[in-house]
Design a protein around this nucleic acid. Structure first.
Lengths: 338, 338
DNA sequence: ATATGAAATGTAAACGCTTACACAAAAGCA
DNA sequence: TGCTTTTGTGTAAGCGTTTACATTTCATAT
């Protein structure tokens, strides 16, 4: 049986209140007493029971992290950085992977709330649906604890968003490719999450601003059942066979970009001479292919740090900005010439 | 303020005991009463407070997952599968990333224990040190809750291990490469964790069983400060310049294998004609390079499923096997000829 | 109608902690 | 010296559940 504060108080010959005060670093306890209690705690290796503590404090010092799939390269990085930052501030992370199925979000949210987490972090733009009722669960959550959203924007009281201006980043990258002389660009994407929409918008805006006409015919969405890189590459091959010619591919993430590279290799198209490829997220995958992949970096680590900083501020009652936007930057490698 | 069981009991005109029984699916409550209570619960959207529940039940229905770095491709996959399986059994996951620094393990362990988790899962063989005192924290934990270890072996009461027989897998893969005619094989690794040692042992055993002599000169350890793929590739280049000739590289994981491929490409060595490369873990990286990487699959998903099954058994008081071993299998792709 | 046992419900103690409030000891001041 | 603060410590009431045990209700057999 685990020791309780009561056991410690007896051994140290003080009251449980004093032990509690020592534990919580209260200033109103004599140095000698503090030492006596600490010695006993160290000697017997006592650790306070967080559940009981949570009841008294009404806080678990735990943050619920929800993400669709923590094994996704991008999301895993985000979760990792968040966990690190939270830990540095004395918080634990309750992880909850919801999958990409939209329905379950509400259930998972209430489950995680019942653990009396101090806040909820939604990682990734999959958590923002397009309809109002689909997002009701966010509002419900925000009524109980602060809700932090990484990589998407949602305006509501007690909801704080940290994100990268994907639209602008994609706009700039597209423009740069276009102005380097590649005017026929294929846009390659899969799911249209919040940030997915923004990226596509950025691409379209850039193309439209150059009065491009046929780019709409060069927008290629991979169907949901193409999960493997090979399947994606093959799908792209079929699409390309019927589409107008193109000299560049902009992919919505690095994995899709790798699929694009595979497509080129299967069809004897040389990169970057005949085809230029651009990815998104600047993940480790950029280094794994040949040639190495040019990609857009969304400053994930900086974003997570800002998120946790904002969260800590909110939890300590400070007024904090509801929306913090970072800008992406193009990391040029060898799949592009510009 | 959140609703309590007490509020519900008043609205439903029953006692809190009855509400609690409904919540816990006790058989001794009349159907009509159950319905009445459930209706109120649904109507007012009550969720029980897990902390309070933990105090009564002495269980949080939460499992602590410790891993060095949840953004590592392999570990992230493991964490994801674990989380999924645990969720399916009604448990939440408290994630704790310890980093690779050995000292901190003990502190993190006691932190996570204070949350009254029902068990602890150590993900990855980094958690097994080579000295007895370094592993004392595992024994301490096992005194309080079951400890599950994924990917390493540690014999102790209340400690359960699920792993892949890395030594054997590596032995077989090495033998297969050797017998296909590649007798000079370079072994490329970084950290010597528990499974890292096993893999190296497997390689050595296979080479020794063929009376190879110079393989010891072909064992290349990347120093800890080489974190990027490029740095690893460059290090390998320098090593190769001074080492005997070799026709194959066996890497301790896929990322190292990618570095090996990069090394070959930088030096104009063709794969697989002049150099064959073999990775470990069969991660997504195997599909990202050209040619695609042959790799050893350690059945991670099966392992995690077995782990959670064992854990659930242990938690429900059943006798469970303390060690479950799976065997790895070679997935042949294009970086090898055999 | 009455006794009997089973089924359903209620009562109250326990879980381990925090903290408002009460109190005692020590210190400062006239 | 006695009076007032200040400082340190203790007492006890919560926090929201679970559950053993007590009690009521209800059906069945007598």
């Amino acid at each position: 049986m685990s020791l309780t504060i009561y056991d410690i108080s007896k051994k140290a010959e003080v009251s449980i209140a004093t032990v509690s005060r020592v534990l919580n670093g209260s200033p109103k306890v004599k140095e000698a007493t503090r030492k006596k209690v600490m010695d006993i705690i160290d000697e017997y290796g006592y650790t306070p029971n967080s559940s009981a503590r949570a009841m008294g404090l009404k806080s678990m010092k735990t943050i619920g992290i929800m993400c669709a799939d923590s094994s996704d390269i991008f999301l895993a990085k985000a979760v990792y950085y968040l966990e690190q930052n939270l830990q540095a501030h004395g918080y634990e992370s309750l992880l909850c992977c919801t999958g990409y199925n939209a329905d379950s979000k509400k259930n998972y949210a209430s489950l995680i709330l019942s653990k009396k987490v101090d806040a909820i972090i939604l990682v990734g733009s999959h958590f923002i649906g397009s309809s109002e009722e689909e997002n009701q669960y966010i509002i419900d959550c925000s009524a109980k604890v602060p809700v932090m959203i990484l990589n998407a924007s949602f305006r509501h009281d007690n909801v704080y968003c940290i994100l990268c201006d994907d639209m602008n980043a994609m706009y700039r990258a597209t423009t740069e490719m276009y102005e380097s002389g590649i005017t026929d660009i294929l846009y390659f994407y899969d799911v249209l999450s919040y940030s997915g929409r923004k990226k596509l918008d950025g691409f379209r805006m850039a193309m439209q601003s150059h009065h491009s006409k046929k780019h709409e015919e060069l927008i290629c969405q991979v169907p949901a059942d193409c999960r493997s890189i090979d399947a994606m590459a093959d799908y792209l091959g079929k699409f390309a066979a019927k589409a107008p010619k193109f000299g560049g591919i902009i992919a919505a993430d690095d994995q899709l970009a790798i699929a694009a590279i595979k497509y080129a290799q299967k069809n004897g198209i040389s990169i970057p001479d005949e085809l230029q490829v651009l990815g998104y997220n600047n993940s480790i995958l950029t280094h794994c292919c040949t040639p190495e992949l040019t990609s857009i970096d969304s400053q994930l680590e900086t974003q997570t740090r800002a998120l946790v900083k904002t969260l800590i501020g909110v939890l300590s009652g400070q007024e904090m900005p509801q929306k913090t936007v970072f800008s992406g930057s193009l990391i040029k490698r060898s799949t592009t010439n510009f």
